[in-house]
Design a protein around this nucleic acid. Sequence first.
DNA 1: TACGGATGTGTGAACGTGCACACAGTAGGA
DNA 2: TCCTACTGTGTGCACGTTCACACATCCGTA
Lengths: 337, 337
Amino acid sequence: MSRPPKRATVHDIAAAAGVSRGTVSRVLNGGYVSAEARAAIEAAILEVGYVPNNAARTLKMRRSQAVAFVALEPHSLFLDDPNIGSIMLGANAALSLADHQMVSLVVESQRDTERVARYLSGGFVDGAIVVSARTRDPIIKVISDLSLPAAFVGHPPELSDNIPFVGIDNVGSARAITSRLASSGRRRIGMIAAALDRDSGIDRLTGFKTALGTGYDPALVADVPHYDYGSGVKGMRLLLEREPSIDGVFAASDAIAAGALETLREAGRSVPGDVGVVGFDDSTWAVRCQPQLSTVHQPAKELGSCAAQLVLRQLRGETLEPGGQMLPTPIVWRDSA
Amino acid sequence: MSRPPKRATVHDIAAAAGVSRGTVSRVLNGGYVSAEARAAIEAAILEVGYVPNNAARTLKMRRSQAVAFVALEPHSLFLDDPNIGSIMLGANAALSLADHQMVSLVVESQRDTERVARYLSGGFVDGAIVVSARTRDPIIKVISDLSLPAAFVGHPPELSDNIPFVGIDNVGSARAITSRLASSGRRRIGMIAAALDRDSGIDRLTGFKTALGTGYDPALVADVPHYDYGSGVKGMRLLLEREPSIDGVFAASDAIAAGALETLREAGRSVPGDVGVVGFDDSTWAVRCQPQLSTVHQPAKELGSCAAQLVLRQLRGETLEPGGQMLPTPIVWRDSA
DNA sequence: TACGGATGTGTGAACGTGCACACAGTAGGA
DNA sequence: TCCTACTGTGTGCACGTTCACACATCCGTA
């Protein structure tokens, strides 16, 4: 491994400008400097193309001005979940305003987990935003042990109540949109439930159940593994098979709803005439579909910026009230129901 | 801003184990250490929960074992382009194997540009992979001035031939799939051309023109701004208006093709019966559509890993042959044409 | 004259690490 | 006996930065 070329340091600048290191530092960071000295130093900086070494600054300051954005198991996310990108952009915007650099790290394999843990521990970042953590992810323990300022997006991690989180009320949102679907006169309402190994999946199903109350029929729930389009197709076929008279469907995601719409079209059912369909996420899927989806708006960008704020506040030394924060999820009523 | 708590250093470990710093260093980095010393040190490390400070290591070694993944103007990318995620994952996998941490930086605003430039200059990363650079992006100059090992994905940046790149042959691929469409007996073939402010957009149009040769008719080209679904809808409407007898369409992306399919369905045209449609990218759109798209396969994952390799080879001190690398783009023939 | 404050500059130490070097002991061969 | 090789350990320095401190000068005022 070849070492990179040596670069100019404050020392070189000081020598070139005929002053001391301290004065150069003062030009860069503020302090009393005479006009001549400042001019000479600025000229020298331009001449040799000096850029400060952040690794040295971080070492001394114990601050990197960087915050990690850790995306766990992003493989499926990048392909199916349009939210992760918006969350990232929201977080980046908030951090950018506070002059912090967001660096995102993807964790796919065991190997990644260990390397990212080292990276987080190593002082390269001042804090971390963690998205889509499984309850017992080893990364959580690393952050907890280091007491690294952090925030979770999604569900609170069980084993550490001291890490704040921001999320949405999946139960309440699912209940609300199911109720609205029911109130429009639908009698046989089913659900395509997905990702029941995650909190979000379980919660959406719970919301559906509570909305229907005694009218809930387990036979009308199709259980599919993922939040994606293909699962929607499969799930809808299952429901049509089990209950041909079905007239309402709550899909656990917009992608699933899109798949369901396609299946319904193939089966010759009109939407929203024969069957009313509602989704979840208000992602780009919602407006691409024909008809456009009635769905729960998930404020992805706000989730990202909120998480960023939670980290920034900790960096400022504020002590946060324990517990999490739920963002509102308005229902967007379009044409599919 | 509160300083983070002090953490254990090699010094503390040495004191706890009753040895010198050097011996601790040798336990961590390899060297001659007696069994007793090693045991004592390892016990001490576990006890105090020591983690090495990477900022200090980076300062000393002039190596961070991290490579930046710079996504320029990712806003539209995350929403419309399914490739960026795959490129990232491909790059991450390759870097992960070489035990390098990929850190991705998004650049959306002027503010971001400056901060990312500082970050890249600051020694936090050993190299950079740059995606979707405009020709004259200031980031390119920063990388060039620093002679930071880098690789571009997409088109070569004009002003610096010494930075390698990996991309696909947009002209050739577009020509190939247009020819194939023409050879299936279509007579009136149009194109929905997009993003003509980018090289990829221009090149795909050029390929289309050369494939048709003298049969090329400018009236059959609809020019839309973006690679997205909505543009496909608009573009197809335009083409149908101008030339109702159109029987073949080359869409500049799969998302556009999907939009075109929807418009054709609304217009009562069958696909591939009345009109043959081909796309570009082989993204998730391609298999979601009804009928599934015939398209050009873009090897996104390989683009990412190739770019990573180019950076890693420079880090190993290899001198690369100048110029770029084109990855093959096989045609995937499905049902839409 | 003496003092205090404001302005401007230089020096030494420290952040935590890795490596070169010095040094010590042991063993084997010429 | 001396030389070399190998194993094992401690010390000093350097990486590039910031900060505390010391020092120097000038000015207005008691």
